[in-house]
Amino acid sequence: MKGRSLAIYSWLAFGYAFFYVPIVLLVVNSFNASRIGSHWGGFSLHWYQQLLDDPQILAAAWLSLRVAFISACGATLIGGCAGLALGRFGVFRGRMALTGMVAAPLVMPEIITGLSLLLLFVALKSLTGWPESRGFTTITIAHITFCMSYVAVVVQARVATLDFSLEEAAMDLGGRPFRVLLDITLPGIAPALLSGWLLSFTLSLDDLVISSFVSGPGANTLPMLIFSKVKLGVTPDINALASIIIAVVTAGVVIAGVLMLRAERKRVAQRP
């Protein structure tokens, strides 16, 4: 019995090593003065310096951050509505359609989503003249579309754990639905909205394939730029860029986790 437990926990430890060792080595290497990654040439911030002097990378990063911010807000709004409808409204017309359309983007190969959205934008342009050119707007719309599914799933799961007697009481006392949503439902699902927003932000920041399809000439997101560079192999300045992105995302996730844990404790403590 003991031997079996040991074996299974060793496997788990091995799994975590598999997850984290490549990332840790990447970060360590970003401080390596040597150009060849396998030999330690001393500690250096040279590659970070080089990064800050590259206007192309800065422009791509700025575009990616703007897209990610707006996409995360849009996906949280629309995905939140979807999660609320699926988790709270019981049976309604269009429920089947909504369930299917929310689940499908989670597993749909990105190349199909990307190609189909591009064809939509092209068709819309020849019909209505909009969008005039592809770039920020089209990438943002595409990102909202695939991110909102994740928000919907998180919100739906959260709604399922909430007690709705308070909401019903407010309705019975004559509260208008929108008011009840703002005052009672929203605080209840706020942690799910926050994690949905963060998840959307990171997914948007990371997307390569869909962005490649729906962006036009001149509009390069950060992953598009990184991909075009690393196709040819490992470059030290990308190590530095990768380390920055990983640090920012990890910090964001940890902060969000702490905030959510605190909100949860408060909620439990306040319960009568």
Binding site: G37, L205, V230, I245, T250, V253
Partner: peptide
């Protein structure tokens, strides 16, 4: 947690491990 960090960069990290001079 790994799911939250960049997918593209995680693949890139393996390039640094597996390459000829990796």
């Amino acid at each position: 947690l790994p799911f939250w960090s960049s997918f593209l960069l995680r693949i890139y990290a393996w390039m640094g491990l597996l390459g000829t001079h990796g």
